[in-house]
């Protein structure tokens, strides 16, 4: 059992970025997103014994998270969701550990550039934001997992990605972000 608990911990650590990316790709706010994130993991824990193919767990999680996101959106609770990039802008918040690491003087320029990249990303269309936010999971999800997370055909992902990254590069060029 100890080994199982350790394996579960490794699974959670390995796939949490994917689950969180699915949540944010669907533009759930942090509070609702957190509930969906938990639901997905609690449900996986319940189903763990029945999942026959371990290499399908990521796709299973992605798909489960997507369905919970859609339900939360459909429940039409008052969600402070918006296209406004400021909603997602945490620059004024307490620094996260990751932020603290790059607070040094020489990293300030790098951080400023990433922030402008983040702003440009939020100017993209909804479809592009959704796909690219998912692709930001670490490690990058497979196209099979992306398809499960977004309800897209596997074959459509490559072309959409290509188009969205081109749009983003155009935006960055217009703003002089290199």
């Amino acid at each position: 059992m100890e080994g199982d608990a350790a394996a579960w911990k490794a699974l959670v650590e390995g796939l949490s970025p994917l689950v969180w990316s699915v949540v944010r790709a669907h533009r759930l706010n942090e509070a609702d997103g957190l509930e969906v994130y938990q639901t997905a993991w609690f449900r996986l824990a319940q189903h763990l014994r029945r999942i026959r193919e371990p290499d399908r767990v990521a796709a299973w999680l992605a798909s489960t998270t997507r369905h919970e996101c859609l339900k939360v959106l459909k429940a039409a609770r008052p969600l402070p969701l918006s296209d406004n990039p400021q909603v997602f802008d945490r620059l004024s918040d307490e620094p996260t550990p990751e932020e603290a690491v790059i607070e040094s003087e020489e990293a300030a320029l790098d951080r400023e550039r990433l922030h402008r990249l983040w702003q440009a990303f939020h100017e993209l269309g909804e479809r592009c934001q959704r796909l690219l936010r998912l692709l930001m999971a670490s490690p990058p999800p497979s196209y099979l997992e992306v398809a499960a997370a977004l309800g897209l055909a596997v074959g459509s992902i490559g072309p959409i990605r290509q188009r969205c990254l081109r749009q983003l590069r155009t935006l960055l060029a217009e703003r002089g972000v290199r």
Partner: peptide, 30 residues
């Protein structure tokens, strides 16, 4: 570009603190 976006997401849109532990704890329920 994707690598840079990934870094930006880790900074500006990280998994909320405490989330990871709640998922790890789900194992006890199982």
């Amino acid at each position: 570009l994707e690598n840079q976006l990934r870094r930006a997401a880790e900074i500006f849109d990280p998994l909320p603190s405490g989330a990871l532990q709640s998922a790890i704890d789900a194992y006890a329920l199982h």
